[in-house]
């Protein structure tokens, strides 16, 4: 068709339009059949963004594509009997022995809600529908926050690069935490809720509290916003009872636990999409920022590393915007080394 040149301009333009249409159809066709390569995909979506009519047309074809498939798929090899029984258990129509778990599954699918725009979330729900699974693992990747809602509407926020392992065993829910999480737990006489960070445990008595226990950090912290918590050692002996506004700081090197007053609004600020730093050294700030931005900070100027800052940063701020602010407010120079295979490195001079 490409060789069909005609003498009149009109004819040429018609032929050209035809070729474009023909190619467009081929591309849509390939995209839908999942046989387009990266370049074709890019070209297609570019055109989609630029040409409203093309977009409408493509959407029409896509729907046609899907419908023609659904049409002839009136059955499936899915075990509907099994699924129905699960559905029925969820409705509470039938009491099942592992009711808590049954209900939990229902929420597992819908629990993960993006907290705010600009925050990505990722989650892993293991082995749904595999019968009696008693442990659930939730994980937030670097740069994302997820929330987990329990059947009794207790809620857990999971900060960037954190992992939560929930086990329900005979009225005792154990939450193994590595990383940072904010708990809003409903009090229930019939079950206990214990957060285990390895070195110590937090027994909840109906509360809002924040726990920060990243393995790479030197200190683990737990802060109480509302309610009542007990701090237990690994042998379940009560070490301290904490009141709202207080927290514990555990020094991993000395193994000592200290109760102190803590500004709790700072502890929970991350759940609202903010970093709050009050009199934090640049080095301490970078520790937190590394987890969020998935970069490595390298502070070459040691004086600068110990300089103290107080600031509030929105988490949607990019690392570059943050560095620009830093550059304006203090004598800081920076350089970003991009690293194809791993984390980018930010050098602060």
């Amino acid at each position: 068709m490409c060789n069909r040149f005609s003498k009149t301009n009109n004819r040429i333009s018609l032929v050209v339009i035809t070729i474009v249409k023909n190619n467009s159809l081929n591309i849509i066709n390939k995209i839908l059949a999942n046989q387009a390569d990266q370049t074709e995909k890019e070209a297609f979506f570019k055109q989609l963004g630029e040409d409203a009519k093309f977009k409408e047309e493509s959407i029409g074809i896509q729907n046609l594509w899907h419908l023609s498939h659904i049409q002839n798929k009136q059955s499936s090899d899915i075990d509907k009997k099994l699924l129905f029984n699960e559905f029925w258990a969820k409705t509470g129509g039938k009491k099942v022995n592992n009711y808590w778990i049954g209900n939990f599954q229902k929420y597992a699918a819908v629990i993960l809600v993006a907290l705010f725009l600009g925050m990505a979330l990722q989650y892993f729900i293991p082995q749904l529908r595999q019968g009696k699974v008693e442990t659930y693992v939730y994980q937030s990747e670097k740069g994302s926050v997820s929330t987990v809602i329990l059947p009794d509407s207790s809620k857990v926020w999971l900060n960037s690069d954190s992992k939560l392992e929930l086990t329900n065993r005979k009225g005792l829910i154990t939450a193994k935490l590595s990383g940072e999480a904010y708990f809003d737990i409903k009090h229930d006489e019939n079950r206990e809720f214990v957060v285990d960070v390895g070195e110590f445990k937090i027994k909840d008595l109906g509360t809002k509290f924040n726990v920060k226990a990243y393995e790479c950090d030197n200190y683990y912290r737990a802060a109480l916003l509302e309610g009542d918590i007990d701090i237990l050692n690994t042998a379940n002996t009560t070490l301290a009872n904490i009141n709202p506004g207080q927290g514990v700081i555990y020094n991993k090197h000395t193994g000592k636990l200290k109760v102190s007053n803590i500004d709790t609004s700072i502890e929970s600020a991350w759940t609202e999409g903010k970093f709050v730093f009050v009199k934090k050294t640049l080095a301490q700030m970078c520790e937190d920022l590394e987890k969020w931005y998935n970069v490595d900070f390298n502070i070459q100027n040691k004086d600068l590393a110990n300089e103290q800052y107080t600031c509030v940063l929105k988490k949607t701020t990019t690392v570059e915007q943050m560095l620009k602010i830093l550059k304006v407010t203090s004598e800081v120079n920076y350089q970003i080394l991009s690293n194809e295979t791993g984390k980018d490195i930010v050098i602060i001079k």
Binding site: L25, E56, E57, G60, L64
Partner: peptide
């Protein structure tokens, strides 16, 4: 690929009242 593209074009033409259909494909 070419037959599938043609199929899509035919079907879309036939279902134009139901699916967005803007560009005339008669030429094709």
């Amino acid at each position: 690929e070419s037959r599938m593209s043609k199929a899509l074009a035919f079907l879309r033409k036939d279902l134009k009242e139901y699916l967005p259909f803007y560009i005339l494909l008669s030429e094709f």
